[in-house]
């Protein structure tokens, strides 16, 4: 693998499969009585989070700890950054303490690319603005493959706020690289112009997107989108785009329902769908740890596992 994991855009099909296959091995560690291997002993990993995150940060931290890395969490409130230090200075100060890897979550698209240019440490993108969230897409692919035994040829519908979603971009890139048919669906106001040229089908009809789908992936719709006049109200959003049991019925009988979290029940997804038999939402969370262990391990050089 390359020095950093900045996005799915930089990964080949082979590298994606390598991560997924490695994650299979990592998952087994979670079933052991002592959930820890010495693989990253003596390595220092800094989780540098400029945006609030519970799931991703916890998932990375558990993954790091299970690999015996020394981990350090730095949560920077954006307000204090505005007052003082630049990202470059923060990064260079951390860099001076010689960490091996920096896991970065940042509200600006491209922040990890910027960090990677100025740091020797390996950089893992844990979500940058509206750009990419590569480990999310990898864990989603892992979850899909587990259920469907393949990714190529599947119809995957991704429904929600396409404009602001880094989960959409990473998943669209990954799933099309592996040969899936990706349908991106959301209100016209939340479809970035140019999306249709990324190899995905763009539709504003949930029914068409979900029709015959093997996988339905819901994206979070944020409250503040009302202010930008993207959608009139959450109530109307649910009526037009919300995933209900009736809409799920248009998909294949063995459809799986996914959500990267955090969910807005009753806004983008009905509770009986989120908690229904086809929901794999909590499996995604569990798989996230294994996939992140795989990424950390492979970036560290992939040694000491055999």
């Amino acid at each position: 693998m390359k020095k950093d994991l900045l996005g799915i855009a930089d990964l080949s099909q082979e590298e994606i499969y390598l991560v997924l296959d490695t994650a299979e091995a990592m998952r087994e560690i979670a079933q052991r009585p002592i959930k820890k291997v010495p693989t990253l002993r003596g390595k220092t990993v800094v989780n540098l989070f400029f945006e609030p995150s519970t799931r991703t940060r916890t998932s990375f931290e558990i993954a790091e700890k299970r690999l015996s890395a020394d981990t350090l969490n730095i949560a920077v409130a954006t307000s204090s950054v505005l007052k003082g230090e630049t990202l470059a200075d923060t990064a260079m100060n951390i860099e001076a303490m010689a960490p091996d890897m920096i896991v970065l979550r940042h509200a600006s698209s491209g922040a990890p690319h910027f960090l990677s240019r100025i740091c020797r440490s390996r950089v893992i993108n844990a979500g940058d603005g509206m750009h990419e969230h590569p480990t999310q897409a990898l864990l989603d692919a892992f979850t899909i493959r587990e259920h469907k035994k393949r990714i190529g040829g599947l119809k995957v519908a991704i429904v929600g706020d396409l404009l602001h979603s880094r989960v959409l971009r990473s998943n669209a890139l990954l799933l099309t690289k592996l040969g899936a048919e990706v349908w991106a669906c959301g209100p016209r106001t939340l479809v970035p112009p140019g999306l249709d040229r990324l190899g995905v089908h763009v539709s504003t009809s949930v029914d068409r997107a979900v029709e015959g789908a093997d996988v339905v992936m819901m994206l979070r719709i944020q409250q503040e989108r009302m202010q930008g006049a993207f959608v009139p109200s959450l109530r109307e959003y649910f009526q037009v785009f919300g995933m209900t049991v009736e809409r799920v019925a248009r998909a294949k009988p063995d459809v799986i329902i996914m959500h990267p979290g955090p969910m807005n029940r009753g806004v983008e997804i009905a509770s009986d769908v989120a908690d229904g038999p086809y929901s794999v939402i909590l499996e995604q969370v569990a798989n996230g740890v294994a996939v992140r262990m795989a990424v950390l391990y492979l970036l560290a050089g992939g040694a000491g596992m055999d």
Binding site: S109, G110, R166, L198
Partner: peptide, 15 residues
């Protein structure tokens, strides 16, 4: 610029 590259890079577009 609002278009393919802004969409790919996750940058807010200006038409």
């Amino acid at each position: 610029h609002e278009g393919l590259h802004a969409a790919t890079l996750g940058l807010r577009g200006i038409p």
